[in-house]
Amino acid sequence: MGKALEARAVSARFHEQVILREVTLHMPVNQVTAIIGPPGCGKSTFIRCLNRLHETAPGATMSGEVLLDGHSVYDMDPTEVRRSVAMIFHRPNPFPTMSIFDNVAAGLRLHGLRNRAKLAESAEQALRRAALWDEVKDRLHLYSSALSLGQQQRLCIARALAIEPVVVLMDEPASSLDPLSTLVIEELIEELKRQYTIVIVTHNLQQAARVADKTAFFLDGEMIEQGTTTALFTTPQDKRTADYVTGRFG
């Protein structure tokens, strides 16, 4: 089961530059929340605040609250937060110095699992959930670079799922993939939302419309409008949202 994530008045900056202004957004359990908006509006920064990855960048600061199932993640140990709130990046980033198996096992090992049989079992389960098992089961000990980009992205998903998170954040997970791999990922998201709460940043409005239950529109560091995906796309309340979703700018 996933857990709900809630951002309250989240602001973020790099040095003096304000990137996010008081964003409040509820991301409901076992639903897909899409975040859309023009480039540079702070979408990535926002979801990086959710798993406390933002604060690791030089000059990055944030304020506001992020609640995971009602508990503030900024009161927790950051490594524990990131363990519960997984993240998939816009470019597949498997560990290039590790085998496919070791990639999936990396998170488990970090958190102290040493038993080989259990590692193998969890890795297989994660690879199955990421819809990759059948493609790699015979070559688990090859380097991850032996896979295609789309497979690498699913490997990253498997790696993230292996440590049993409750929320999965995805930053344009299909933006560097071909249409077919994109389709596979989208089907996967559909599948995953039964078990996880999913937040996905996307540039692709059709993609948001296809996969998301809820959508939020960001502009210049502010959350302009949020609502069910259907509502946001068909009856936007704000003119800027309307302009964006109808392709008049951005």
């Binding site: 690791t56 990131r82 990046f89």
Partner: peptide
């Protein structure tokens, strides 16, 4: 991005340095 992958898995600084 590789270092961030490690951190996103919940690695500490030390683990990130060693791993990624």
């Amino acid at each position: 991005d590789i270092a961030e992958a490690a951190m996103a898995l919940g690695a500490t600084r030390q683990e990130t340095v060693a791993l990624a």
